[in-house]
Design a protein around this nucleic acid. Sequence first.
DNA 1: AAACACCGTTCACCACAGCGAAACAGTCGC
DNA 2: GCGACTGTTTCGCTGTGGTGAACGGTGTTT
Lengths: 167, 167
Amino acid sequence: MDVVLVRWPEEDTRLQQLREDGSPRLLLLNGESGPPESDDCLEDWIRLPADDRDVRARVARLATRAETARPEPQVDGDRLLRYRGRWVALSPVEGALAATLVDRFGAVVGRDTLARRAWPAGMPTRNALDVHMLRLRRRIASIGVEVRTVRSRGYLMQAAKPRADAQ
Amino acid sequence: MDVVLVRWPEEDTRLQQLREDGSPRLLLLNGESGPPESDDCLEDWIRLPADDRDVRARVARLATRAETARPEPQVDGDRLLRYRGRWVALSPVEGALAATLVDRFGAVVGRDTLARRAWPAGMPTRNALDVHMLRLRRRIASIGVEVRTVRSRGYLMQAAKPRADAQ
DNA sequence: AAACACCGTTCACCACAGCGAAACAGTCGC
DNA sequence: GCGACTGTTTCGCTGTGGTGAACGGTGTTT
């Protein structure tokens, strides 16, 4: 999503509209005007004149926040798992598992739920799910998605976080 | 909560600690150093020299965000203890104990109350509660929650503060 | 003050179940 | 025939809950 640059306070009307839309925005403060009060994470400001790198850094940060504000991946009709511009092709079974996990992204999905979706007629072996989950994990790691185990409850899909513990 | 001012890049070590703690922080950039990459809403930066009003404005904004973005932890249906975007999976016994403590977050919960919730039929051993409380403590430390003992009264769950005045 | 009981912490150990992972084999499509 | 996909077996790690015991701090009794 693009970050909108707003001169302030000149373009206050435009700012109000952007706030309502939830568009990420960077306010460029002219002269002596004080910074506006807003605790919205998608709004930032900088006082002019400013280093061009600093402006770009704030724009980039707002863009990242706007991206991560809705970080749900999706599985399209061709069994491509897409996430933040990247994608991987999945096999039929993996696609079914991934679709189920994406539906409840960030929450736990039970093993039985996953099994019914992947094998409506019944799971071939108790261990089949584990093996396919292992293969799914290795694929989606390349696009920054991970599946974590919640013992005796199921699996949970989330954005891959570099740090270990907790997410 | 107080916003911490950090000179950057000089105090990088301190910055890492603050990030882990989830403390709101304002980076004061010296000279030519570029702004750090972080999309955390509780982190902001400003280039020195800066107008004092601007620094105060950014500090105030961070403080507001820190206030509003401070919910209580929560134990969901799958026994995940969630807190400030992070989570850990709990075992059944730990989940029962954590749920009881979360219900009275910040207040003391008696040992008998905890024991009844975890073992409705009666506690197996005398120190079973202690052992499970020890395990729960170690687990939840990773997401910034702690359980403190109130001798002969019970236990109290709260946000983990890396405070120096303890002990 | 010393002895004591009480309370809580921490560790080591065990048995069990869930899950991970490799290795192998069968099937299908190009 | 080759590679991708899938199913199956086997081995072993690790989480889990329970138990006993050592350790230490605290307040009370003698």
